[in-house]
Amino acid sequence: MTQYILRRVLIAIPTILVISFVIFAILALAPGDPLAQFALNPAIPESTRERIRASLGLDQPWPVRYVKWVSSVSRGDWGISFNTKAPVLDLVWQRLPQTLQVVGLAYLIAILLAIPIGIISAVKQYSFFDQIGTIFSFIGFSVPSFFTGLVLILLFAVNLKWFPIVYKTVDGSGWAGFGEQIRQMFLPVTVLVVQQTAALTRFMRSSMLDNLSLDYVRTARAKGLKDQTVVLRHVLSNSLIPVVTLVALGIPTIFAGAIVTENLFRVNGLGALLITSIQNSDTPVVMALTFIFAILTVIFNLIADIMYGLLDPRVRFS
């Protein structure tokens, strides 16, 4: 096992390098211009824009820029953002807490909701509860999150005025600050929970159904065990295996933020940063965010694989 982990970690390093190269190439070659906002301004002629591009280092061919990027990142310098003209990493650190609060909390709630709903839906397949659960989860992923978000804003913010539209980066001190924080987090978290619970519930239900029909369940029942014990002890632990992998694989996506939802509610998280940086062709920021995401993906895939081996004794690592 140790040897397996060691080998996987060693493979991860070239993998991450290759990924960084591909991402860099895509960002460098994809169309877009950090100065597009000024395209029509007669006061900012092409010569000025050319000079600004040069000051940002964009006048060099992209393979050269890539080599420079790798060497500076290995020294811990992630470059400067085209928009703020300040270090990229400062931006990332500034945005991380909001994303962890909103997206992370939503993910946690989604998991806590999805597992019991999935279990009940599977045990009582085609029951009333199952049908309602099914319908809700399909609303969850056939309706885009901006739609859910807009409906919630209209209902709870504009009409009822229970929650604010504008998420403020408050320094939540004391109970008042905490209460305000909960209030402004409520709508974005709800939107994300609706979306994430949906998919997880479906996978949980399906995994439970697969296990419920297996021999060992019948054996356990034949032994005279109570239904509850069978489901919670035997079936659940086996059904959780694929779901746990899925959950582990979903963790990096927390750090990618929730692009649409963050933008809609003005949560200044990593997702909002990513999309504005993409829109403004702020490549150093996009590069940093996607690369950090890539590293997390590789790490959590490794964790998922290891967990899979630990949870399921049949899986052998070779």
């Binding site: 991402i23 895509i26 960002l27 169309p31 877009g32 999309i275 993409i278 890539a294 590789v298």
Partner: peptide
Amino acid sequence: TDLFLSLPAVPLILL
């Protein structure tokens, strides 16, 4: 798969 999971979708699509 890792590579594809980590590619930035919007620039990739544009490209």
